[in-house]
């Protein structure tokens, strides 16, 4: 039997970590408790972060929006600031798991679990999310792309936690897009996914593009070459098609129970073509 602690503050959490530094931390439990049951992890104690007030909520700050790492996915999905400014993230949340999973799971958990298929991750990459890492001794900030280093692997030292996510408010992209290809709509782990932010001029030319793919590499894949290839050109099937070989080259998918690598590579490229649906002046972020 393992002790389960539910600290109510960071102060209390640091005390618990002092006493049991190898304790496993969780918030929603939708990943960790599955692994424990399967015998994949065997921590001496558990600390549940669901009641640490300092790790929850969405704060509208001067230039940034701060999201507490233990904020549930459903709270975030319904948050007016997220809906107004970060539709790409809302779209990722909307197709993550199922309602009860979103009521339990947290954004911090989705990041730290670092699944290549994590549905908030491509959005957080294109938004350039900065992560606030805290410990008893202080805090540091790291970009999400530097924090996640492999499947399930993040640069978190013992005694450190992911406390919050910072998103820059000034994001001029009018088009926010996320699409996941899975075997069904709910409860599907992505076979391949793509998040995109685009700015398109009145004459239909792509002025800026940010693209990120999930489930087609050990971490989220970004592809500057593909971004550059569609920038400066009309948002059309023809110009998007030209970028497909660049995407196919950038990704490094694997075969697994959901799909084989070749299929994933093909889908990753073809996901680009969906962006053409935004060309007819339909620049709303819906």
């Amino acid at each position: 039997m393992r002790d389960v602690s539910l600290p109510r503050s960071l102060e209390e959490l640091w005390g618990l970590l002092d006493r049991e530094s190898a304790a496993a931390l969780y918030a929603g439990g939708t990943d960790l408790l599955v692994k424990l049951r399967a015998g994949l992890e065997d921590p001496p104690a558990l600390i549940c972060l669901e009641r640490v007030g300092e790790l929850k909520g969405v704060q509208d700050e001067l230039d940034e929006v701060w999201i507490g790492a233990a904020t549930t996915l459903s709270t975030l999905m319904e948050d007016p600031i997220i809906q107004r400014r970060f539709q790409v993230l809302r779209k990722g949340l909307e197709v993550l798991g199922s309602p009860p999973v979103r009521h339990m799971g947290t954004i911090g958990g989705n990041i730290v679990t670092a699944s290549p298929a994590g549905d908030t991750l491509p959005a957080l990459y294109v938004l350039g999310a900065q992560l606030e890492i805290r410990s008893k001794d202080g805090s540091r900030v790291v970009a999400i792309r530097d924090f996640i280093v492999g499947p399930g692997q993040v640069l978190l030292n013992r005694g450190e936690i992911l406390a919050g996510i910072r998103l820059r408010k000034v994001q001029s992209y009018a088009i926010h897009h996320y699409e996941k290809v899975g075997r069904r709509k709910s409860q599907a782990c992505a076979i391949a996914s793509m998040a995109a932010l685009l700015t398109v001029s009145d004459s239909g030319v792509v002025e800026a593009a940010r693209l990120a793919w999930g489930s087609v590499g050990p971490t989220v894949v970004i592809c500057r070459e593909a971004e550059a290839a569609i920038e400066g050109k009309p948002l059309s099937m023809e110009s998007l098609k030209l970028a497909i070989p660049l995407v196919e080259k950038a990704v490094s998918p694997i075969d697994d129970i959901r799909a084989d690598a070749a299929y994933r590579r093909t889908v990753a490229g073809l996901l680009l073509l969906r962006l053409s649906e935004y060309s007819a002046g339909t620049c709303s972020a819906q």
Binding site: S5, L6, G28, L33, V34, G97, P100, H103, M104, Q187
Partner: peptide
């Protein structure tokens, strides 16, 4: 399923649907 995929163990926690196979007793407090 015991892993959050099927919803057979759904309960309401403070009125919100959650999965009782992925919640530990301490969290009931």
């Amino acid at each position: 399923c015991g892993s959050g995929d099927c919803g057979a163990c759904t309960i309401l926690v403070d009125g919100e649907s959650r999965l009782s196979c992925l919640m530990l007793a301490a969290q009931l407090q």
